[in-house]
Design a protein around this nucleic acid. Sequence first.
DNA 1: CTTAAAGTTATCATATATGATAACCAAAGC
DNA 2: GCTTTGGTTATCATATATGATAACTTTAAG
Lengths: 83, 83
Amino acid sequence: MLSKKITWEMEEKELFVRVGEKIRELRNVKSVSQLELAERCDFEKSNMSRIEAGRTNLTLRSLNKISRALGVTVAELVDVEQL
Amino acid sequence: MLSKKITWEMEEKELFVRVGEKIRELRNVKSVSQLELAERCDFEKSNMSRIEAGRTNLTLRSLNKISRALGVTVAELVDVEQL
DNA sequence: CTTAAAGTTATCATATATGATAACCAAAGC
DNA sequence: GCTTTGGTTATCATATATGATAACTTTAAG
């Protein structure tokens, strides 16, 4: 059986991905397009795409912008299952 | 009466400060020194001081390290009053 | 007093988030 | 077919988080 050792990089990557999914989820619930959310946050749409794909190590500043654009708290944005 | 307009920079700064205070609070509850926490996170102690003072725009990676070092979730770390 | 432990602040280097731009894809409607 | 809307991916520049190091303060203990 192959090893299932989980490195902190993997676990961190999982966190990024889950937060990205959470953002997309909340965005969809509010029926906001990615472009619209990007504009509300004053982000490039390409940046928004990277974020939702979990390819970014988000900063508190960005999380704050997104949370306000979606009408939720920062804590809600990062409230995901953790390994 | 002087203006009380709150800019997003002020509100962002407040968020940074409150998250820093939250970290310090949780660290003190667990009776961990700043140096000890810095070592657990593999941070410089000077970095840890900046963070608790709210002079840093923390990343998800750093929040994740700190949350694990303190035995709480990332969501708990950023669960602060927001303006 | 001296010593040490805990924390602060400043400076410089490096890594990377984000801005800026562009090319591209897919689906829907014409 | 063409066009639009929504999204993805790549590249380069810039701003900044963090690493690394050092000097400094403060507090408590001796």
